[in-house]
Design a binder for these strands. Structure first.
Length: 274
DNA sequence: GAAGACCTGCTA
DNA sequence: TAGCAGGTCTTC
């Protein structure tokens, strides 16, 4: 479930809890397929005794740089999260120095931990992170114009821009009043400008609100301390089908675009230009 | 493009 | 009980 704002929240809270500078004392792996490409035993051996220098994020990837020179790259996929207290579905438990314990929780077991010598192996496949200066309007416009595809799957494509997932994609399209099935090369410069601004804005606001938690169940995104994210109250489109549009009061529609559930306002996000 | 795979749990 | 879920990858 985590998208850029949720991953950023978790990474910054791990820094706040003092994970940087700690030594990995032990690793307990309860679900071995999480680890790639090493076996559980090889992985434990490689990270045990190393110091976590830095916890950072690019797109939806979390990166733990280790004193060994290797980098632990973590992708939370649909349900991964980190906590400092024991919970249910803890797939990996790492004991750190200074009595700190890091619990990796992942109900659906989709998340992956990759130990790599060079993060570029993974990062080079990503487009620029949506919240960095490298993600410019010029780059975005050119990328959209040179393709002839529906806009929603394009902004979800991590190889073009890294960080958006289904929630923030629907939010950005709602904000910029663009139908999710509009073809990328039919968007006007004004529309591309609005969408570009909306992408940055919805992600920034999501970070500020410490992410979006839906529902109240245990499978939802949680902050490191187990609290919900506050962004749910700000969501305009995602998960609001059947409810009135917060801009024009029309009832929001739900459809499927490129195999992803998609909520939008057919009144203020018209299918066709003009 | 689309569909299936990978998984579990919640909701209708 | 069927259907759906914040993601990505592989194979048509």
């Amino acid at each position: 479930m985590p998208e850029l704002p949720e991953v950023e929240t978790i990474a910054s809270q791990l820094r706040g809890r003092g994970v940087e500078g700690k030594i990995i004392l032990s690793v307990k792996i309860n679900w071995a397929p999480t680890i790639e490409p090493y076996s559980a035993a090889q992985f434990s051996k490689a990270v045990k005794g190393t110091t976590i220098h830095e916890v950072s994020r690019v797109g939806k990837w979390m990166m733990f740089s280790l004193s060994s020179g290797q980098t632990l790259m973590v992708h939370l996929r649909m349900a991964g999260s980190f906590a400092m207290e024991k919970g249910s579905h803890d797939r990996i438990v790492m004991k750190l120095s200074d009595e700190l314990t890091l619990y990796y929780r992942d109900t659906r077991k989709f998340g992956r931990w990759k130990l790599v010598d060079d993060p570029q192996v993974i990062l080079s496949k990503l487009g620029p992170d949506a919240l960095t200066r490298q993600f410019t309007l010029k780059y975005f416009s050119a990328a959209m114009k040179k393709r002839h595809r529906m806009i929603k799957p394009l902004i979800l494509d991590q190889g073009i821009v890294a960080g958006l997932g289904n929630i923030y994609a629907d939010e950005a399209l709602w904000e910029s009043m663009i139908h999710p099935e509009r073809l990328s090369d039919t968007l006007t410069d004004a529309e591309l400008g609005n969408l570009f601004k909306a992408i940055k804005q919805v992600l920034k606001t999501g970070v500020k609100n410490r992410g979006t938690s839906l529902g109240d169940g245990k499978t939802n995104y949680r902050q490191v301390d187990g609290e919900s994210g506050d962004h749910r109250a700000q969501v305009k489109a995602y998960g609001r089908s059947g409810k009135p549009c917060k801009r024009c009061e029309s009832i929001l529609e739900k459809t499927v675009v490129a195999q992803r559930g998609t909520t939008f306002c057919s009144a203020c996000q018209p299918r066709l230009e003009q």
